[in-house]
Amino acid sequence: MDFLNGLVTLANFVLIPATSYGAQLALGALGVTLIYGILRFSNFAHGDTMAFGTTITILLTWWFQSMGISFGVLPTALLALPFGIAATGLLLVGTDRVVYRFYRRKKAAPVILVIVSVGVMFIMNGIVRFIIGVSDQNFADGERFIISARDFKDMTGLAEGLALRTTQVLTVVVAVIVVAVLFWFLNKTRTGKSMRAFSDNEDLALLSGINPERVVMVTWLIVAGLATVAGVLYGLDKSFKPFTYFQLLLPIFASAVVGGLGNPLGAIAGGFVVAFSEVTVTYAWKKVLTYWLPDSLAPDGLVQLMSTDYKFAVSFAILIIVLLFKPTGLFKGQSV
């Protein structure tokens, strides 16, 4: 019984939250890694792209709510999501036309593109602030729990409750669908394969008659989808605040680098590595250990390796370890 109680506690506070957080990071990292693979720079505007997509989705969600449209037990935001993606797609393709294309034609060094993306980040950040301000926004509606802690206790008779929030399950389900569609697209369709070819060997792709502008445009559209989905899921699961999204850059970059920049499979693995490390290192293990260990060994302190305020330090530490020992990432990334 103690073992089961410990396991339930672990699932409730570590496994479930880390899985949904990992899925959100993976979606974010996929966007970063795709841009890196095709356009060959680290996009500092990615966090703010996520914020933009989420902002539009939130506005539409509020509008739908005011008109009485709802999605039953699911959050209304899911209905607004496609429109958010479309708006973000327009913004990204437009940005590419106005800003990035010029440097691509000039064959500018990657670091110049990184700096340009910093400028884009400023502007997107400004746009988001214009539209929605800087404060916290909560836009989740629909059924809050699939299983609440109390129901779980009544059902199982265990002392510990297990709460399963709709947003957590939704995050994982949506992420699985998105990733499956993305991989089907990259591996099975002509356009998807041409993107991989372009990422692999740009010159040869050009020789083979692959149109670079088309590849780049499709990439931005996919990135718009990934970023908006990641942003909306994160916002539903936690809450939306523009600055938090900017800060998400670090764990997202860490995930992409850990997995190997430019490698989509790596980005997913990296997302979960970072999320699980973050949650396990900052979780206070006292309760779980009290259940699992004999009374004589029960811990006195919280058994928390690091305070939750240091969650960024965890992504950073992982990043440094990978850079020191395996700069191309766990899965083979593009270059050192």
Binding site: S42, L250, V257, I320
Partner: peptide
């Protein structure tokens, strides 16, 4: 790669 320095410095500042 130059990007890695950028990402690493972004991290150390937050920490």
């Amino acid at each position: 790669r130059s990007d890695y320095l950028a990402i690493a410095t972004l991290g150390i500042a937050e920490i």
